[in-house]
Amino acid sequence: MFHVQNLTKKFDRTAVVKDISFSLEKGNCVALLGANGAGKTTTLRMLSGLLKPNGGSITFEGAEPGADIRSYIGYLPQYPVFHSWMTGKEFLVYVGQLAHLTKQEATERAEYYLERVGIANVGNQKVGKYSGGMKQRLGIAQAMIHKPKMIMLDEPVSSLDPIGRREVLTLMEELKEDTTVLFSTHILTDAEEISDALLVMHHGEILEQGSLASLRDKYQSAKIELAFKTFEEEQLEALKALPGIGEVTANRDGIICLVDDTEQARQAILTKVTQENWALTDFSVSKTTLEDMFMEVVNK
């Protein structure tokens, strides 16, 4: 539905976004994942028309040729700023009218979306009095007001407290029903929680992309975490030598073994522990998380 091809952006000859390409499916919720400074905001700003790319193309399926691409998208910047002397509802009606709605349509939709994002009770108060969470919701409402084909949210939950975060995530999950959502985040659990697909960005490049399921298939492996009362270097070596065990790493909390065959590895490890009489304090079998995948992709 939405295609980005070879998009590039340079600031003073330093490429911030390097030749990225991706497509979005209709009705998907896609997370643009990356550390601070990876180029996420720059990418979203280019897609929203605020920045001009140095190269590449952005196309919408079904868009009339020569049409203003901004009619099809809604955008929420990381730190949305409103006219503080306006009320939330006035602002929504204002931007609605800018997006070619009639005054009546804009008013109706403003009321609807104020209700929808849960700030109908403060709709007639000045935005200057809003809390951070309320501004974020108003921001989402203004992005939705002209029923865009796609909304882009830049770090929509990063600045919120845990409760506000939860509420906005739930809201985004609901918005998926109406439109395509592309949001950037550096928080992996948020991405994992509500997105259908991921774009992993690092140093201006998209290193990995795909649906959540396919990425899990590709990267997820079983792992066994161990902790001992006392840690010795030779334990690592001994574990590495066991059958069914791949990479072994140690961190502050203990030892992590990536395993090929969980059953075989578990037996081997437990046997070894008993033989050597190591003081085992923790033993757990789990799967690698998106964070592990992220680290793997980024460090490749």
């Binding site: 929203s48 028309g49 605020l50 203003d68 901004r70 009619s71 998208i73 809604g74 955008y75 910047p77 730190y79 949305p80 700023v81 409103f82 006219h83 931007v95 800018l98 997006a99 070619h100 921001g139 203004q142 002209h146």
Partner: peptide
């Protein structure tokens, strides 16, 4: 930053 919100609309 207000311009960001206004100018992403087809103005």
């Amino acid at each position: 930053g207000i311009a960001e919100l206004v100018l992403v609309k087809p103005v």
